[in-house]
Computed example of a mutant assay.
Amino acid sequence: MPPPGYRVSMGRIRVGTSGWAYASWRGDFYPKGLVQREELSYLAGRMSSIEINGSFYSLQRPSSYRTWRDAAPDDFVYAVKGSRFITHLERLRDVEEGLGRFFDSGARELGPKLGPVLWQLPASLSYDADLMGSFYGLLPTDVRHVVEFRHRSFCADEAFAQMREHGIGCVVSDSPGRWPMAEVVTSDVAYVRLHGHTELYASGYAARSLDRWARKCRRWSNDADVFVYFDNDARGRAPHDAVALIERLGRGGDE
């Protein structure tokens, strides 16, 4: 069983999956007969972090966050995906009330297990310095935040500088030619989302590709804490790829 996190140079590398409740994992990654209420604990015992993605679709209950907190080891960390009401419906405009509702819904119940909050932007949202500056200014400062943009206009020095000014992490989003990927560290968090090696949300990562990601994680850890989440869950590859990356980081060599 791997340690909860891998301390490498200045930062710590944590690896996990985006979500955990997938039918295709049952009888495959999850042992046959494992009851569903035990799946989170099983996964958390083999990863060092998990990205909570249900919070993107609807507000969760404080009791749910407490249950998730108690299901994981002491040194475990959750990332929480921000509400799509804020990012996709309101498109970051006039969201002060929405942000209040989101954080009041219970994420802080995770306590010391609360890691970065992920704000995934719609692909149709282009970079607007005033809009992004206003949004960044509303975000609570007691939580670390990262942004996954999907419009190429964000790949600009001005956008990265603005992220650095506000302490916002830039998500490294690996998708097979679907969205731009910027390998830029803009805060004390390097946040990686691996959506599939060759097929979005579906294909697994080859050994050589995992070797490359392990090397990148070590390099980024010189400047930041690194969080890596596999989102290629459609065919059940995510937990297996996460374990494979954990093994590479744990054994100390990736060539």
Rank of each mutant, 00 (worst) to 15 (best):
P176W: 04
P62T: 10
V77P: 07
A79Q: 02
V117T: 12
L194G: 04
R193T: 07
V77I: 15
R219V: 12
C155K: 11
D188S: 15
L200Q: 01
L118W: 00
A234P: 00
W25V: 00
Q120A: 12
F160N: 01
R218L: 14
T141M: 07
F230V: 13
L249S: 05
S55K: 03
P116L: 05
H166Y: 12
G5L: 08
E247A: 14
E96R: 06
T67I: 12
W68C: 03
A107P: 00
Y78F: 15
Y191S: 09
F227S: 06
L138V: 10
M132E: 03
G250Q: 02
Y22F: 15
A234N: 00
S221T: 07
A129K: 15
P176D: 07
C170V: 08
L114Q: 03
A242H: 00
F154Y: 13
Y78N: 10
T17L: 01
R235D: 13
M47G: 06
Q60S: 14
E199D: 09
S58E: 15
A123M: 03
L99H: 00
V117P: 00
A206Y: 04
F85P: 00
D174L: 09
L89V: 15
G167Q: 04
L245C: 04
D231G: 07
N222G: 11
W68Y: 06
G45K: 02
A161K: 04
D70G: 03
T186G: 12
G45S: 14
W213L: 10
L200K: 02
C155T: 14
L110G: 02
G98C: 09
L138W: 08
M47Q: 11
G33I: 00
S134D: 15
A129I: 14
R61H: 10
Y22K: 06
V147T: 05
I86H: 10
R66C: 03
P116T: 05
E255F: 12
Y57S: 04
S58I: 14
V15H: 03
V228K: 06
S221Q: 02
P112D: 14
S63T: 13
R208T: 14
V189K: 01
A207K: 09
V226D: 11
R218A: 08
Q60T: 10
G167S: 09
D211A: 14
S153D: 11
P31D: 07
T141P: 01
R101D: 07
T67Y: 08
A44R: 03
V15K: 01
D75H: 13
A207D: 15
D75Q: 14
E148D: 06
A202R: 07
K113D: 04
E96I: 10
F227M: 07
G5P: 09
D28S: 11
F135N: 08
S124F: 13
N222P: 02
I86C: 10
L114G: 05
G16M: 09
T198R: 12
I13D: 04
G45I: 13
F56E: 01
D241Y: 05
V243N: 01
P176E: 13
T141E: 14
I52K: 04
R235L: 15
S209C: 13
I52Y: 04
E39A: 12
P180E: 08
V80H: 14
A182P: 00
S83K: 01
A79D: 05
R46M: 01
D142N: 08
A234L: 13
R208P: 09
F103L: 03
T87H: 06
